[in-house]
Amino acid sequence: MSKRAHPALAGKTAVVTGAARGLGRLLALRLAQEGVRCLLVGLEPEELDAVAAECGAGAAAFEADVTDARALHAVADEAEERFGGVDIVVANAGIATGGPFADTPAPAFDRVIEVNLLGSIATARAFLPALRRRRGYLLQVASLAALAPAPLMGAYCAGKAGVEAFAHCLAPEVAAEGVGVGVAYLSWTDTDMVRGADEDAALAQMRRRLPWPMNRTYAPEPAVERLLEGIARRRAHVYGQPWLRAVQGVRGALPALIGAFAPREIARLRTELEATRDRRAAAVGAGGAADMRARAGRGG
C-alpha cells in the first residue's frame, strides 16, 4: 500500500500511547513524517527515547503507565505547558493473555482488562480537556476482538469490546464541543504481541484453524496507513484491514457461528492446553514483559 500525504495533519501535536514498539511506534513514525509533533507514552524509556529520536525534532517521550491516572495527567499538563496543547490522542496501549478462563490466574486476566479498558478510559479522561480546547480527535484502537468473540482470549475480548462501547458512548457526548472520536479495528497484525501469542503452540493452532481471512497475520504497514488516513479524516470507524468493515454487518451472527465450531477445537487442544497452563501467568510478548517489569518495580 503506497504512502499518501495528509496535509491536514501538518503542525498538529499527537499523543500516542503504547508507542515504544509495534503499531504505536510505526504510527508515531508516520505521523512525524506528516509533520506531526509526537508525544510518546509507554513503559520502556530506552525504546521510547529511540522512537522519539526517529520521529525527529520536537518529539518527546514520557514514561507512564496508562493505568496511572496521576502520571497521565502529568503528561497532559506538560504537553500543554511545553507544546501549547494536543490535537490528536491515539489510545493504543494494550496487552494480551491467552488460554482458558478457568486456567488463567486472576491477576493476569484482570490486568489485561485494567490496561486495555481502564487504561484507555484514563487516557481519555486525562487528555479530553486538551482535546476540547483544540477541537481535537481521539482514536481508540480496538480490534477484531471487539467484533467477534475469540475463545481462549476472554480478557482481551472483554477489554476491546469495552473500549469500543466506551468510545461509542463518548463520541456524541463531546461532538458538540468539536471533538471527534473514532474506533480503529485490526485483525491479527504482525507485532510483538501477536508473535508472543504464537509462541504458545495451542493458541497458535487454534488461530490457524479460524476461518479465512481471520486466520492470517497481516503486515502492519498497510494498517498504519489506514489508521493515518482515519486520523486525518477524523473518521468514526477505521479498519486496519478492509475486510473488517464487512464483519461489522454480520457481527450479530458471529457468537453462534463461533459457538458451533469452537467447542470441538478446544476439546481437541485440551491435552496441550493442560500441559502448558503454567506458561500463561502473564501477558504475552515484549509489551507484556514490560508491563510486568514496571509493576514489579512499583511493587504492584
Rank of each mutant, 00 (worst) to 15 (best):
Q248F: 06
V250N: 03
D68W: 14
E272M: 08
I258A: 12
R30L: 11
G285P: 01
E164F: 07
G98H: 05
F261C: 03
A145T: 00
G180T: 09
E272G: 13
V90C: 08
D103V: 06
K12H: 08
I258D: 09
F166R: 02
A20G: 09
G98M: 04
A96Y: 03
Y218E: 10
G159K: 10
R37F: 06
W188Q: 13
V194M: 09
R207Y: 01
A232K: 01
G180Q: 05
A32I: 00
Y137L: 09
A142K: 02
A102C: 08
A28S: 15
I121W: 11
F127I: 01
T13H: 00
H73G: 05
A289Y: 00
A71K: 10
S120I: 01
E177L: 15
A60Q: 12
A93S: 08
A281T: 11
T97W: 00
N92R: 09
T13L: 06
D192Y: 01
V179K: 10
L26W: 10
E274W: 05
R209W: 09
N116I: 01
E272C: 04
G182N: 03
R4I: 13
L29Q: 15
A161M: 13
P45A: 02
D65L: 14
L257T: 07
C169Y: 08
G299P: 09
G84N: 05
G24V: 02
G159Y: 02
E81H: 12
A161E: 10
A171F: 07
A76C: 04
L131G: 09
C55A: 14
V66E: 11
F261D: 04
R280D: 00
A52L: 03
R251H: 06
V247D: 12
V15W: 08
V75K: 03
M153L: 15
R245I: 05
R195T: 12
W243Y: 15
D68T: 11
V194E: 07
V16D: 13
G42M: 00
L117W: 11
R270T: 10
I121M: 08
Q241G: 07
A202W: 02
Y239T: 02
T104D: 05
I95M: 04
T104Y: 04
C169N: 13
E229A: 15
F127Y: 02
S2K: 11
D278L: 14
S187K: 01
R70T: 15
P242F: 12
D192K: 06
P129H: 08
Q140A: 10
P222G: 04
A289S: 02
R25E: 15
A165G: 08
R251L: 02
N215I: 00
I95A: 01
V141G: 13
M193S: 04
R133C: 12
F166I: 05
V181G: 03
V112P: 03
A53I: 02
R295Q: 15
V41C: 03
R295S: 13
A14F: 15
G297R: 15
V250Y: 07
A267W: 11
Y185Q: 04
W212M: 11
I231N: 10
T276E: 02
E177F: 14
L254S: 02
E274I: 00
V174N: 13
Q248C: 11
P129F: 03
A267M: 05
D291P: 10
Y239F: 15
Q205H: 12
R208K: 12
R111W: 12
M214L: 15
T17I: 07
A74T: 09
A130N: 08
